[in-house]
Amino acid sequence: MPRIRSAGAAASGKRAGNALSYLVLGVWAVIVLVPLYLMIVNSFKPTSEIFLSPFSVSKAPIFDGFRMVFEEGNFLVYLFNSVFITVLSIVGVMILAALASYALVYWDVRLARAISVFFLLGLMIPMRIASINLIIMLKGLGLLDKLLGLLPIYLAMGMPMGIMILTEYFRTIPRELVQAAHIDGAGSFRIFWAVMLPLARPAMATVAIFNLVNIWNDLWFPLILIRSESQRTLMLGVTRLFGQFQTDWTSVLATLTLATVPILILYLVLSRQFIEGLTAGAVKE
């Protein structure tokens, strides 16, 4: 340890440091929360009031915007589509990535290591670059403009991150457990199913969370692959509703609120696991 300042100076320095921290973090909290606050309070006001007093909570809240969203648009279709494709993709990524990771950790050949690296390369390359060929391929498969056409793309997109997180996690599972199960006569699949999967729950949650944010919020692939009203995801539908509501800002803000609040609540409820899951995955990169 180098030379240290006197204790008194250090203590006052700490107090000043704390005050500064509160100031900085407080200002940032305002910058984060104010736009969300404005979005929500203004979705209950008629357009004229939004412009006259954007900051206040309306004394006579109206629900026209929300009514418009449900009556005039196909909001529920979009919502259903998004839930459907997101859940399906996440489940798919979890299953495929878990199976592959299990083998990549225990299969002791050069090829397995090469395949691991091959998967990890995908972390560095955004899938959008492949878009042109994906359009052509999906067209060939008859999956263009079909919600299900997004599934293989999201599976492929989620795979590198899923495999990275899960292989890292499987490596931390004590070998003795696996070996004990093997001695008990369990086959490799049984070991996977009965031993590895239950243990990997936290890592699986991380994979799920990562994909939830990425897939739920994805605009690019729906934008280039989906055209029909009945196949649109929430984000694509939201852009379309902006076009429909135009100057009706009440409805626009109601749309935004409805698209945001579910995931926001989910996040707030799960925020501890969410953040821990994310840091667990990110650090190991």
């Binding site: 199976l99 299990y102 599976l155 492929a156 795979m159 996977f192």
Partner: peptide, 14 residues
């Protein structure tokens, strides 16, 4: 075990 993940990854990404 690897095949399904690899197949999707190769076919739709690589």
């Amino acid at each position: 075990y690897i095949l399904p993940a690899l197949a999707v990854y190769v076919a739709f990404m690589a």
